[in-house]
C-alpha cells in the first residue's frame, strides 16, 4: 500500500524533476566558475549581490556541493556578502522547482513562500555585509 502510493507520487513528479535537472545541468555548464566569480567579486558591490541573489534563486545545486563551491568562489575573489546572498537563496529560494512546489501547495502559497525566503536571504546578506 505504502509502496504503491510512493511509486504513484514518484512517477507523477518524475517529468518535472527530470527536466529541472537537465535545465540546471545546461546552465551550470555554460556559466563557468570563473565567469561567476568575476560577476560577484568582492568589489562588485550591490550589483554583485543582486547577481548572486538571482543566480542562487534560479539554480539548484546539491547542498553538499553548495558550500565547497561557496568557499571556492571566496578564494577566487568573490565577496562574503555576495556568497551569503548566493548560498542562502540557493538553499531557500527555488525558481526552477516552483512548478513542483505549486503542484504540492498552490500558486499563492508557493509564490509567497519564495518571496519571503528571498527577503530572509536579503536581510541575511545585509547582516553579513555589516558584520564580516
Amino acid at each position: 500500500m505504502a509502496l504503491r502510493k510512493a511509486w504513484k507520487s514518484f512517477s507523477s513528479l518524475l517529468p518535472e524533476v527530470l527536466s529541472i535537472m537537465m535545465f540546471v545541468g545546461i546552465s551550470l555548464a555554460i556559466l563557468s566558475p570563473e565567469t561567476i566569480s568575476r560577476l560577484i567579486g568582492s568589489d562588485s558591490g550591490p550589483f554583485g549581490v543582486a547577481v548572486a541573489l538571482v543566480a542562487g534563486s534560479v539554480t539548484l545545486i546539491p547542498s553538499f556541493v553548495t558550500f565547497p563551491l561557496g568557499a571556492a568562489l571566496l578564494k577566487d575573489g568573490a565577496g562574503y556578502a555576495q556568497i551569503a546572498a548566493f548560498v542562502s537563496t540557493l538553499m531557500a529560494v527555488g525558481i526552477v522547482t516552483l512548478p513542483v512546489e505549486i503542484k504540492y501547495f498552490n500558486w499563492y502559497t508557493a509564490v509567497l513562500r519564495n518571496i519571503s525566503a528571498l527577503f530572509v536571504s536579503i536581510i541575511f546578506t545585509i547582516v553579513i555585509w555589516r558584520l564580516m
Binding site: F67, I83, V120, L131
Partner: peptide, 23 residues
C-alpha cells in the same frame, strides 16, 4: 556542519540566527 567547516562558525551562526526568527 558542512557550512561551518567551509564558511566558518561566524558566517554559519549569523545564517542561523538571522534565518530562524525571520522564517
Amino acid at each position: 556542519l558542512y557550512e561551518i567547516s567551509y564558511m566558518g562558525l561566524r558566517f554559519t551562526a549569523i545564517h542561523v540566527a538571522v534565518g530562524i526568527p525571520l522564517f
